[in-house]
Amino acid sequence: MSDTIYRNGIFSANEWIILDDEADLPGDGKAMVSLDRFLELGGTAPEGLELGVVIRAGDKAERLVDHLAAVPVIAVDFPKFSDGRGYSSARLLREKFGYRGELRAIGDVLIDQIPFMIRCGIDSFEITHAPTRRALEEDRLNEVPIYLQPVGREGEVPLGTRPWARRRVA
């Protein structure tokens, strides 16, 4: 199964590889590297290679701030589904620093967490958990479609009697 990337309602192939810090940079293609390595490279890839970044839990997303306009994809790693640091990193990237490229959840990505991830600005998901894949294919997001707090995500519709606070899924 190589079409592991769920984005905009469909599964497609993962075009990105994730490089270990020790591995040599390939001559072409698309590669994601750690935040440290990305910054060492000054955020620029050799001609022919596209470079993305992996934000691991514990990484400070703000270190990327000068490079955001040029990064096509940032992967936020969830080492365990119960480790929620990635949600804050995602919101910081989107809402505080204005990142507009692809924001991808990788790691332990499960169906019950995906609605939260979406609200934090994540828009693509690497899915390896079979029941999660099945649920997405069958369009069973199982989310509570009313939100009781505003976040900075675009497209959420202010709602009803307390439009200041409440939103509905767009």
Partner: peptide, 13 residues
């Protein structure tokens, strides 16, 4: 209570 209910960022503290 409203703000914190199913808060997308703070449900896995």
């Amino acid at each position: 209570r409203q703000w914190s209910s199913l808060h997308p960022e703070f449900s896995f503290l």
